[in-house]
Design a protein around this nucleic acid. Structure first.
Length: 256
DNA sequence: CGTTTTTGACCGGCGC
DNA sequence: GCGCCGGTCAAAAACG
């Protein structure tokens, strides 16, 4: 709350639609210096299906975002869980996080969110905000917090998958929303592109190398994507020319 | 007046 | 068992 309303600069970055992937030169040890760029995301899920998030540039952090979910990725060979006792009332849901260099905390992503909580987090002077998708029947949540190490970095964690297209599609035929529809309609229901960490107009060359090095075996589903599926997704997007059509939703404003 | 945000309380998981 | 911590609830306030 203390940093709730800094005077927004002229080119405030308030929407992920504005995000541009960094060039390789911008990447230093897995991070980038260019402001207002989405430079990393990782997923922590086992049944992730693509959504509009996929067009976000796909690089991976040097270190994972601290999260309980990051430790339960393997689980295949080990079943230390009690048979029924710990049946994991927390059923695992698709979840991934990405980091942006942005001055605003809550980036507009085309969906409508209602804030339902805010908590101070340990080892960080910045609070964490909890949002829920306002669409009835859609239980997607997201957490937004500012990095304690670099206050200019916002970490956004999505949990779950939207069961509906972006509401902004009706209002402004938003590009990212169109992407979501493209994916959704392309496969009927379910996963369209089995592994679609789509990066737009942006070769992942060195970044991809970075990802592979860090994962060692490719534990993360997003980073273990095959190049073929990635490129096919890219072509799909380019052929439809959706990226050029991206327009910002009309309701975007700078007050949080 | 309906919707969203704020914020303290509450709850459950986990480590000690 | 207890305390810490992350996540959620819900009433009140704020907002448009």
């Amino acid at each position: 709350m203390s940093f709730g309303a800094p005077p927004p600069p002229a080119a405030v970055f308030s929407s992920i639609f504005d995000m541009m992937p960094p060039s390789d030169d911008d990447i230093i040890d897995g991070y980038n210096n260019k402001p207002n760029t989405c430079f990393a995301f990782m997923d922590l899920l086992d049944n992730y299906t693509p959504s509009f998030f996929d067009w976000l540039p796909s690089t991976t952090l040097n270190h994972p975002i601290p999260s309980p979910a990051s430790s339960n990725v393997p689980e295949s060979s080990e079943e230390k869980e009690k048979p029924e006792k710990k049946k994991q009332k927390k059923e695992r849901v698709a979840r991934f996080a990405f980091m942006t260099k942005s001055e605003v905390d809550h980036l507009d992503d085309g969906y409508r969110w209602r804030k339902y909580g805010q908590k101070a987090v340990k080892n960080s002077p910045y609070p964490r905000s909890y949002y829920r998708c306002t669409t009835a029947g859609c239980g997607v949540k997201k957490r937004v917090e500012r990095s304690s190490e670099d206050p200019s970095i916002v970490v956004t964690t999505y949990e779950g998958q939207h069961t509906h297209p972006s509401p902004n599609l009706q209002e402004a035929s938003g590009g990212a929303a169109a992407l979501n529809l493209l994916y959704t309609s392309g496969s009927g229901s379910g996963s369209i592109l089995p592994c679609s960490s789509t990066s737009i107009s942006y070769e992942t060359s060195s970044l991809k190398r970075l990802v592979e090095e860090q994962n060692g075996g490719g534990a993360l589903t997003s980073s273990s994507c095959t190049t073929s599926s990635r490129s096919s997704a890219q072509e799909l997007l380019r052929d439809n020319g959706l990226l050029q059509d991206i327009i910002l939703p009309t309701h975007i404003n700078n007050n949080t």
